[in-house]
Structures are given as C-alpha cells and as structure tokens.
Design a protein around this nucleic acid. Structure first.
Length: 475
RNA sequence: GGCGCUAUCGUCUAGGGGACUAGGACGGGGCCCUCUCAAGGCCCAAACACGGGUUCGAAUCCCGUUAGCGCUACCA
C-alpha cells in the first residue's frame, strides 16, 4: 500500500487518517507501506510542506517501509506510458489551447449547457497531427475514454460502476510533458506494485479514469478502498474556519500522539464490541477494510480532548517531564531546580492536554499566576461583601497558624459554617478561598501550600479582600 | 446541470431480517463523593431522513423522494 500526499499544504487530519488506515492495513496484513510525495504540481509544492508531512507522520508513529519517493522523479516513465498509449491509439494529441477550452466552457455555461470536451482532436489524421507538430504547435496528450463499463468492487463500498460515455477524454500529459495526476498515480502505483489503493472518498470519481488507464496499459487492477472523508462540525469539508485542521496544531495544543492516533482511527472505523481506547497492537490486530464506515465523519475535538485526558492520566510523570518543561519555558516559569514529577503526578489526572498539565504545574510553581476564572468571579459576586469579610478573617487566621495546621479542623469547621450561613456548598466556598490564596491547590502537600500562604504578596491580596469586618459571621 | 457516493442520538458509532423497549462513547443535564478546579461513581434526556415495496416479521433487503457531500481543470 502507499500513502501519497501532495506537498501543497500541511498534513491535514484527513490525510493523517488516510495514512493511518494504510499503515494499520499494512501492519495487519504484513504488507509494505510506501510513502510517495506527489509533487507534480510544481507551482504549489514546496519542500517545507514535505518536511511537515514527514514530521507529522513520525509524530503519529506511522512508520513507512519505503520512501519517501518523489513523484517528480518519475517524469520519464510517465511520459513513456503516455507515449505508449498514444502509439496504441488509446490516446491522442490535443492542440486545443487553454484559451480555446476556456472559451468553450464559458459558452456552454452561458447557454445553460454542460460543457464536455468534444474530442475534436481525437479525429485528427496522422498527417494533420504531424503537420501541426512540425509547425511548432504545442499539444497535450488526451486519453480516449472507451465507451464501456468502468466498475470495481470497492473494499469498503462494495460494487461501484461508471459508464465511460459519461466521462470526457481527459488530459494525461501536459504540454510541458509532465503528467497529470491520474496518469502519474496509475503509472506509479503500477511501478511500485501497489496491490491496495486506500484513499479518500473524494477519489471515487477519479477511479473510473484510472481503471481505464490500467486497462489501456494492460495491467490488472489493484483493490480499491475508499475511506470516508472527515468533515468539520458544520458538516462541511474541514478547513481553517473550523480551527485546527493540521496534525501539527494538535501537537502544539498538547495532544499526545497516542491519543491522536487512537482518535483518528475511530473516525470512520470501529472494531466493534464498543472498543474505544486501544493500544497500538490491538488496533492492528482488529483492523480490516471491511469494517470501515461508508459515511463521512465529523471531527469532534471535544472527544479528542477527553481521550487525550485518558491517555494523559495513564502516563508516568517521567514521560510528561520534557514536554511540560518545554511548555514551562515558553510560559516563562522557572522550575527552580525542583523535581516536577510529583507535581505532574498530582495534576495530570485532572488535565486534558499537556498544556493544561503545564499550566497547573505553573500555578504551583508561581501562585501569582492564577487568575479568577468565570466561576470564581460569579461566586464572588453571589456571596457579597459580608462574606468576603468573614472569608478574609478566616484567611488571615490561616496565614498566621503554623504550617501543618492548614485546614485543620477548626478552620474547616469555620469554612463549613460560612458556607451554611450563605446557603452554599463547601465546595463553592473553597473556590474563592482558592482564588484568594493565589490559586494554590489544596490537595497539594501541606508544606507546599503553606509556602504559598506565607508569601507577602498573597497576604496582601487576602487583606484586600478582607477589609470590612463589619458583619459577624461564623468565622 | 451530468455522473457518483452517503443517510442510526448534537457528535463518533454498534447493528448484516426476529436477540431492539435500538447498545456503547463524547458532549449536555441531574445526583453522589469532595480540602478549590478537576477526576471518579450513579442516573436522565437524546437517533433508525421520508414514502413505497419484499416478508409472517425490516434500522437491517429493493425502489423512489429529499438532503448532504464529491468529481466534472494542461490541481492533487
């Protein structure tokens, strides 16, 4: 099998999923996965795009057995195949210029008709062709689509059939002698001995053309498997509008490659038995083309993040150390030479992305980073100034007591009473307390917390909140 | 327009003629737990696009309608 992206953009999640299916299939069957970069569109292809694609695949753990090969290197073979078709009368030289074709198209459209290439150059005599060529007229090579059924047994859709008469004779070789997509693909797939072509649904309409080409070239057909497309949340083709569409974006957002791979695998494929979170070998073992969905799938990042959280909490802190440190550096937070692993362990289970883990670690390291979130804000309002007064009192007391008495019984009781007076849950009370305490997490080891409480800055904030102690409360 | 593909909860899906009162997961809602936020546990709401067939019986098979998507380039 092969994965054949064109380096005209970043590695799209749709492309990544196609690559993944190819990889899964190759590993499941013991086959070979070759990577082929389709760079025949010279105007849009760039080296940096190729780099990004390679990096993306590597990140996802999709290992190719052969390649990368660059389609641009096979121009000679593409030409030879086109020539052969030409010699055998299965293709013909077309002297129509882009302008002429464009004009015909416009005319047809204006008349409300469907434009179809009329095959006029296909009726030129050998002499005419020779004369026009000798005169220096440039030409393309067009494939003469036979009027016959072009059908195949798709591995995911079942039988799909087209009629040759519904297809225009299409260009296979440009006037500059480079191959057009359909020819290049077929020529390369034949040369590379590809037995299974696994690609996006959007290629279904190309398949009859390619089948005609295989026949013209006298070669047996590979198995075609057309996998469903991935759509945005509005059911439209995934684009920048939908936010992140490149796998690199998710990498940047702190998604784990294992999670991304697992999630992508489940977009359009299901192993049945309600299996969702699966290790790599399990996915490989269960994967078959027949169990691929025929319907397009919507990319739901909420589920991706949930799944990422699952992987995150299962991961030893050791493996999170490096990415978290990198992120910390980006945030400008110093780890002060501390061992971050215990802190990571404490927060990873409640985070969904590495970025979130890093943020939580950052707050531990530098409590002044914490900010009032929406919920805290709302609660502060709800509870009013009198509450703040009592809260401030409690917190002042907190700051004064010795480290290992933090949240000792009396304090906790006071908070509970406070909550009761205001008709709130203890948890709600803890929210502003946390905010006042500069965002520290109470479930941290006691010492750590106290270090926070003891900070002058923190105390200053507490007093601010606590100013009028007018209303006597439970505190 | 032509040709083709597709159609189960908001989303990912299970389902392959009786096991369907349509199952699971995300998301949503509620409750519990609780030293914040999370996480976790329990519960709830939520779907077979529509219309015809075939059949004793249809989410499952067939046809049509509708809708969505794809292709219709000297792009890939």
């Amino acid at each position: 099998v092969r994965f054949a992206p064109s380096p005209t953009g970043y590695l799209h999640v749709g492309g990544a999923r196609t690559a993944l299916f190819n990889w899964l299939f190759a590993r499941h069957t013991g086959g070979t996965l070759v990577l082929r970069i389709e760079d025949t569109d010279r105007e849009r292809s760039t080296e940096s795009h190729t780099r990004v694609i390679l990096d993306g695949l590597g990140w996802l753990g999709i290992t190719c057995d052969e390649g990368p090969f660059f389609q641009g290197a096979y121009g000679a073979r593409h030409q030879a195949d086109a020539e052969r078709l030409l010699e055998e009368g299965k293709a013909y030289r077309c002297f129509c210029t882009r302008e002429e074709l464009e004009a015909q198209r416009a005319r047809a459209e204006a008349a409300g008709q469907t434009f179809r290439y009329d095959g006029r150059c296909g009726r030129l005599t050998a002499d005419e062709v020779a004369a026009r060529t000798a005169a220096g007229e440039s030409s393309t090579i067009r494939f003469r689509v036979p009027d016959e059924e072009l059908a195949w047994e798709d591995a995911v859709h079942g039988r799909i059939s087209f009629q040759g008469r519904d297809l225009d004779d299409f260009v296979i070789l440009r006037s500059d002698d480079t191959a057009i997509y359909n020819l290049a693909v077929v020529s390369d797939d034949i040369a590379m001995d590809i037995s299974h072509v696994i690609r996006g649904d959007d290629h279904i309409s190309n398949t009859p053309k390619q089948i005609a080409l295989y026949r013209g070239l006298g070669r047996p057909l590979p198995v075609f498997a057309h996998v469903p497309m991935i759509l945005g949340t509005d059911g439209k083709k995934l684009s920048k509008r939908h936010g992140a569409t490149a796998v690199g974006d998710y990498q940047d957002q702190g998604i784990l490659p294992q999670a991304m791979r697992n999630f992508l695998a489940l977009l359009g494929w299901s192993p049945g038995e309600d299996r969702e979170i699966m290790p790599e070998d399990e996915m490989i073992r269960l994967f078959t083309l027949e169990s691929i969905q025929t319907k397009a799938a919507v990319f739901d990042s909420a589920k991706l993040e949930w799944m990422n959280g699952q992987y995150l909490s299962a991961l030893p802190a050791d493996e999170l150390l490096e990415p978290v440190r990198r992120r910390l550096a980006q945030l400008g937070v110093s780890d002060g030479g501390r061992d971050l692993r215990p802190i990571i362990d404490a927060v990873k289970g409640r985070s969904r992305t590495i970025l979130q883990v890093a943020e939580r670690v950052a707050v531990r390291l530098d409590p002044s980073r914490s900010a009032l979130d929406d919920k805290g804000e709302a609660l502060m309002k709800k509870m009013g100034p009198a509450f703040h007064a009592n809260l401030g009192f409690v917190i002042e007391g907190l700051a004064a007591i010795s480290p290992d008495q933090w949240l000792a019984e009396p304090i906790l009781d006071a908070l509970k009473a406070l909550a009761e007076v205001r008709g709130l849950k203890l948890g709600d009370v803890m929210q502003p307390v946390r905010v006042a305490l500069t965002g520290s997490t109470v479930s941290e080891p006691v010492n750590e917390l106290l270090a926070v409480v003891g900070r002058e800055r923190s105390l200053a904030r507490l007093r601010e909140v606590a100013s009028p102690r007018s209303e006597p409360g439970a505190a």
